[in-house]
Simulated assay, not measured.
Amino acid sequence: MEKMKLKMLYSDLKQDIDIIEKELEEALNSSSHLIYEASLHLLQAGGKRIRPVFVLISAKFGNYNIDKVKNVAVPLELIHSASLVHDDVIDNSDMRRGQHTVKAQWNNRVAMYTGDYIFARALEYVTKIENKKVHQILAHTMVEIVNGEIIQIEDKFRLNQNLKDYFRRIKRKTALLIESSCELGAIVGECDPKVVNNLKRYGYYVGMSYQIIDDILDFISTDKELGKPAGSDLLQGNITLPILLLQDHSEIKQFIERASQGTVTEQERLDMLEIVRKSDAIKKSMQISNQYLVKALKEVEALPNHPMKKKLRDVALFIGKRKF
């Protein structure tokens, strides 16, 4: 239902989104049947395609040409997809969006090579773009995403981290790719530099809010809604905002210790969820997410009058209220 609402927000872009969807499938073609099958498994598991949508919307503020825009939208979504495959190996996740992950369907080795292949295809696809700045931004984005993955490994089960550590991590994990989607869409659309900067900042703020909401939903949603056990982030050692706001809670500390040893029982997981849900950490996390949304909406206001301004507002507000 929630995904349907989101698709309705950009239903007028459906024709171009379908073009990108087809390009994504073609981009994953491989002489290796195994790699192709694993890549397609990930693609067909679905996704909100938020990043390509932001590319399309941003490009609309300039000289919109889908044949040029898709050359940015496709590699950005490929980079995102590749990072998901690697994340699932790092976090030892068997489920994503209610579907088996590549590592669960095959194994870790196949998953890692599949992720590498998708990254490589993204790089190959970018060669269709002649703009040097686009290449520089994409290269920087990929480097930072990988740095973020390494830092996430180093930070596992580490409770003595601060909010700055968390914000830096989610910037690399999520916000940077959404920021780049908006920025590159505007650049390929040949937008005015001021418009490019407004859209870039909008993408960053929306991306930060998006990840914070993701981290909240991991605690307040049901297993069925998430398509995986609620609280999976903490079980895997990822210390997110609600837990940082509860880092002095003795029972949470004990839970993290047991999770690091892999000895958490189902009842302990349910007890942990109850503690987080009844605390004020969820409300405080929502407030921080909303602060980022307010900043994003200010960037929208600074943009020139255009029908897409409402679209940017609507998507940002939806992200702030989403339940999936």
Rank of each mutant, 00 (worst) to 15 (best):
I187L: 11
I239C: 09
E266H: 13
E21Y: 05
K323R: 13
R121W: 01
E21M: 01
L226G: 04
P304R: 10
Y204V: 12
E154K: 11
M112T: 08
I129C: 03
Q254W: 02
M1I: 14
P229S: 10
Q105V: 04
Y10I: 09
D218R: 06
P193Y: 05
M112L: 14
L245D: 00
L84I: 15
D214V: 10
Y113E: 01
I275A: 01
L43V: 10
K22S: 11
I153R: 05
I20V: 15
I239G: 08
K200D: 02
L199I: 04
P193E: 09
Q152P: 09
N71M: 09
V72P: 09
S58C: 11
L199K: 03
N290Y: 12
V196C: 06
S30W: 09
S30V: 11
K200T: 11
L13R: 08
S93C: 13
S39M: 09
K323T: 15
A73R: 09
G262E: 04
A38Y: 09
S30I: 03
A38Q: 02
S93Y: 09
E37N: 06
D223I: 04
G62C: 06
R96M: 04
A73M: 10
A82K: 12
L78V: 12
I178G: 00
P52L: 11
Q236T: 07
I150L: 10
Q211D: 12
H86A: 02
D314I: 07
Q105A: 12
F157V: 04
A316N: 08
N160K: 15
G115V: 05
L40I: 14
K311S: 11
I118P: 00
I319F: 08
K323D: 15
I137G: 00
K278Y: 03
L241G: 01
N305G: 10
L176E: 06
E299V: 07
A73G: 12
L235Y: 04
D271P: 02
N131T: 05
S58V: 11
K103M: 15
L293Q: 12
I57G: 08
Y210H: 06
E179Q: 15
G262H: 11
G148F: 10
G262M: 12
I212P: 02
S250V: 10
K48W: 13
N147R: 07
K311C: 05
E21P: 03
S285T: 05
P307H: 14
L246N: 14
R169G: 14
